[in-house]
């Protein structure tokens, strides 16, 4: 089954984020008050791992699982979409303490109220799709 490896990667990710408590509203609040190193340590170590890993992939031209060259997509240039969109997401992140990945993970932990956040997030995505041509990017 082609999708099994992605499903297993997802399980791994869900376990790690839950055990790291990066899905916890409390940890996000604590982070925004600079009252713990925990979240900064996580993000910093993840970044360090990611930067080193991607440099190795690029330097040695590592092939992917299917033997194809790995093509790491560059982000589109721009400013307004990143700063305004980022700020709006940040407001939501600190309010309900979760980002899109943890929404699904928290449903698994039995936090049913997150379903309302998921409905809101789908609506928000939909609204963006409707009005995106009128927004600065």
């Amino acid at each position: 089954m082609k999708l099994a490896r992605f499903f297993l990667t997802g399980i791994f990710f869900g376990i790690v984020l839950t055990k790291a408590e990066a899905v916890s509203w409390y940890r996000i609040y604590e982070m925004f008050y600079f009252q713990s190193f925990h979240m900064y340590g996580i993000i910093g170590t993840a970044l360090f791992t990611g930067i080193v890993g991607l440099q190795i992939i690029k330097k040695y031209k590592v092939k992917d699982y299917n033997g194809l060259p790995i093509n790491i997509i560059e982000k589109e240039r721009g400013f307004w979409r990143y700063i305004i969109g980022g700020t709006l997401f940040g407001l939501g992140w600190a309010l309900v303490g979760c980002c899109p990945g943890p929404i699904f993970i928290l449903l698994g932990t039995g936090t049913y109220a997150i379903a309302v956040v998921l409905i809101g997030a789908l609506l928000g995505t939909y609204i963006y799709g409707l009005i995106k041509d009128k927004l600065p990017h």
Binding site: G86, G92, C99, A121, G124, Y128, L135
Partner: peptide, 11 residues
């Protein structure tokens, strides 16, 4: 949820 959905797609 609205802020997360709208903000992440915009960004």
């Amino acid at each position: 949820g609205l802020l997360i959905g709208f903000g992440t797609r915009y960004a």
